[in-house]
């Protein structure tokens, strides 16, 4: 079930271009900067809300996106038999897809969900690998 809901990935790989075309942001220097732009600009453009970035780990490879108003879950209640369903999982897929297109391999998962009685929605982002070069080949390859 959660696997099928991960289809946000395909949305992400297309959506990133719209975001870049319309927001006119330039190249980000760090993962931290990228996450800030997602939180402040991308969420605003596509979901009309902003979220806060917090809980950075020491090495700056992991952080949380926290938000309270979520247009996806307005008028939604989870029936008791689907309590383990991660309703907002699509957002994880979108972010993963979008960041993959700009050479960042991330892992995104939901750790807090207001539908399940948590106080805030919380998504955890973990940077697995960042490929800096557009042209990743060495001379002898």
């Amino acid at each position: 079930m959660h696997k099928t809901l991960c289809r946000g990935y395909n949305i992400g790989i297309r959506l990133i271009d719209e975001f870049l075309a319309k927001s006119k942001v330039s190249r980000c220097g760090s993962f931290r900067e990228t996450v800030d732009i997602i939180a402040k600009q991308a969420f605003l453009m596509f979901l009309n809300m902003q979220c806060t970035v917090s809980k950075w780990t020491q090495d700056g490879s992991e952080c949380s996106l926290i938000f309270t108003d979520n247009p996806l879950t307005e008028f939604v209640e989870l029936p008791s038999e689907f309590q383990e369903l991660q309703y907002c999982n699509i957002l994880c897929g979108v972010i993963r897809g979008a960041l993959e297109m700009i050479n960042m391999d991330v892992d995104v998962r939901i750790v807090g969900d207001m539908l399940k009685g948590d106080e805030v929605h919380e998504m955890r982002l973990r940077l697995k690998e960042q490929k800096n070069e557009d042209f990743p080949y060495k001379d002898d390859e």
Binding site: I13, R14, L15, D17, E18, L20, A21, K22, K24
Partner: peptide
């Protein structure tokens, strides 16, 4: 060129029949 990029993201990438 920037405008063309916007047009591309609106009418190509959002076309469900278009394969990336």
């Amino acid at each position: 060129l920037q405008r063309i990029y916007e047009v591309y993201s609106d009418y190509v990438l959002k076309n469900p029949f278009y394969e990336v």
